[in-house]
Simulated scan of single mutants.
Amino acid sequence: MAPPPAPLLSVRGLKVHFPIRQGVFQRQVGAVRAVDGVSFDIGRAETLGLVGESGCGKSTTGLALTGLVPLTDGEVTFDGARVGSETGRDLARFRQRMQIVFQDPFSSLNPRQRVRDILRAPLEIHRIGTTAERREAVFAMMNRVGLRPDQAENYPHQFSGGQRQRIGIARALMLNPDVIICDEPVSALDVSVQAQILNLLEDLQDELGVAFLFISHDLGVVEHISNRVAVMYLGKIVEMARREALFAAPAHPYSELLLGSTPSLDPRRRHRFSAGFEDVPSATAKPSGCAFRTRCPLADERCRAEEPALSPRADGRLLACHHR
């Protein structure tokens, strides 16, 4: 039997802590542990959904992977090579292969640049192609994402929100990346436009074989587009499973809370589990043991004293809970 293929992107023990400083001499008095030991893999042409409440560390994880915020600790391996020690051409090549689509299509585009300049910039920075080849590449990419080439002379304010997000996706694709970090790419759009953008991403994945880390708080969107889903709480992944398994029967109490908070007409999707939304702990002072214990009715002394490890279960999912 052949071994399973190696993951395209492998993350182990990723941590991002932001120091808290006070006083005249700006001494560090604490830290915001935004991401506190996250591990996951993404295969080629796979979509991993990353979900959780606002402030759980989802977006910071994506920014850390692309180098937009520094890592505090952890190891990132991309296509067999460790990320973080590259310099010069190796670093440029890595940045070509991993791109990001930002949440807000209104602020992520330079309002003083025409679309042609926004899309041409990645090629110029990496010195790819001649002037004529870059122009043709811009027109071809606009066609690919559903924009007309004659709109290349327009400025971002002349486009709708959905069209601006198409421009953001086109910019991320200009360098033919292997992985795209999608940081809530449809949350600022109308529902009908959301469907168009999601369908576009799926078509591009089928056509180009690109992998996605899809970060969102919208569980309906994640269920539609993801192959696997990781649930994040206070900087840690508490459950990871195939999409079908997670949405059919969430195992972690927090996962069940998230799904139970989403309205559904399907009686099979109505969960009786309940937990408080109040008293959410701070990332600067997390509870001892299991971070979710202050909101979980299953919590006991073991949960207070011992942090559960993310470990495999019989059904193939990864789970961090003492009672499930």
Rank of each mutant, 00 (worst) to 15 (best):
Q26D: 10
S255L: 03
L9D: 11
R89I: 07
L109G: 05
A305L: 14
A45Y: 10
T262D: 00
G162H: 12
K15T: 09
A121E: 15
K286G: 12
G62I: 02
M98S: 01
Q103P: 09
A275W: 01
P3A: 15
L109S: 09
L63F: 14
L265F: 09
I125M: 11
C56P: 06
S160R: 07
L68C: 04
L14P: 12
T47S: 09
I100Q: 00
P177H: 04
L123T: 01
F292V: 01
D41S: 03
C303D: 08
R134V: 12
I20A: 11
Q113H: 14
P177E: 02
V16E: 06
T294M: 04
C321E: 03
A211M: 04
L123P: 00
L318I: 06
G316E: 02
D36C: 08
N154L: 14
L91C: 03
I225K: 05
S85F: 01
R120M: 14
G289F: 04
P253V: 03
M174T: 06
V191E: 06
G146P: 08
L198W: 10
S107T: 15
L246V: 04
V115A: 13
R317G: 09
S255F: 03
V210W: 06
A132M: 01
C296T: 10
R12W: 01
I169N: 07
A314Y: 05
S54G: 05
V11H: 11
V221K: 07
G13E: 13
L63E: 03
D104S: 11
L258Y: 11
A291S: 15
S288T: 15
V231G: 09
F159D: 07
A31M: 08
M240E: 14
Q28N: 01
N143T: 14
L257D: 02
R27A: 08
D150Y: 13
A140S: 14
V210Q: 05
F106R: 14
V179K: 00
E202M: 15
K15Q: 14
S59N: 04
A152H: 01
V221H: 07
F214M: 00
A31W: 08
L319M: 06
R95G: 12
P4C: 04
P267F: 13
A305H: 13
F159H: 07
R304F: 00
F159T: 02
G30I: 06
